[in-house]
Design a protein around this nucleic acid. Structure first.
Ligand SMILES: [Mn+2]
Ligand SMILES: [Mn+2]
Ligand SMILES: [Zn+2]
Ligand SMILES: [Zn+2]
Lengths: 144, 144
DNA sequence: AATTGAATGCAACAGTATTGCAAAGATTTC
DNA sequence: GAAATCTTTGCAATACTGTTGCATTCAATT
């Protein structure tokens, strides 16, 4: 039954949120589930559209909490709105977890390429590498 | 003919604009000079502040014209406002001209690393590489 | 049950980007 | 050179995204 399924899912999500140190409110569960269902990264407004009557600022603050606790990472793909995707369970949101993102210029979808770490570059003298944002743009498998 | 008159003026900026196919109005000359004087990339509001009584939308449209004609390239460094920097004289704004940009997290300045081309990555099956935005963040020589 | 602190909803606001339209300026046509 | 035409500029308004103040609701604790 659908009710039982939802309770099961919630339990699973609860565990994952607790594992990251986030108190699992119902709002947070729902936002987590929305992100979990998607293969692509979503922005604030796309997440908002998944709900009927949830306030934007609540989702915004939920996403803030998630970022602070490495539940999600933000993706700045240049489309104007920051997108978000779930982190791996063992992600620490540090240098080693950085990966390339791919923006499809046809369908607009943004994907994590989690097995493509951002290459460390030899910078000119005096420049110190702390972090990076590497977005590759082109056409995705669906649109190629 | 207007072009001959301007060439007669023997103005360096005019020549550069004409070389890119942009009619050199005084506004465009001034914006070009502002960008030329700087070593760092500037956003719309920083450019606006270099003038006393020039409208933002005029600068905006000047920058649009410059982009359309490969006079400048836009830099999306995640700071919220797009920055702009002059292209090289022989730049065609295509793949080969792409380079890494560096954002200093202390002073906020963004630099073109023109001798650091964006590395071509082997993407997963079905993904086609068309373009990329690679911003490295850290501390610049002044701030390190 | 009362107290406290956290989460949520509503509304307002801030920052950046963009557009419509009319005035001013430049170029071409006659 | 005057009129017609096209381009550029200035002003104002607007769109879009992100963020915050504050009151209310909810949850945990005493
Ligand atoms: Mn990712
Ligand atoms: Mn550059
Ligand atoms: Zn696509
Ligand atoms: Zn610096």
């Amino acid at each position: 039954m659908i009710f039982i399924e939802i309770v099961k899912m919630n339990n699973d999500v609860n565990k994952k949120l607790l594992h990251k140190g986030v108190k699992p409110t119902s709002m947070r569960q729902l936002v987590y589930e929305v992100l979990d269902k998607q293969k692509k990264a979503l922005n604030l407004y796309e997440i908002e559209q998944q709900f009927d009557n949830v306030d934007r600022s609540t989702i915004f603050r939920t996403l803030k909490t998630f970022q602070d606790n490495c539940v999600i990472h933000r993706i700045d793909d240049g489309t104007g709105a920051v997108k978000y995707a779930l982190c791996d369970e063992n992600c620490t949101c540090h240098l080693g977890d950085l990966h390339i993102h791919f923006l499809c210029i046809k369908c607009g979808q943004t994907h994590c390429l989690k097995d493509m770490p951002i290459p460390k570059m030899d910078l000119p003298n005096g420049f110190l590498f702390k972090s990076a944002n590497f977005v590759v743009k082109g056409t995705c498998p669906k649109c190629s």
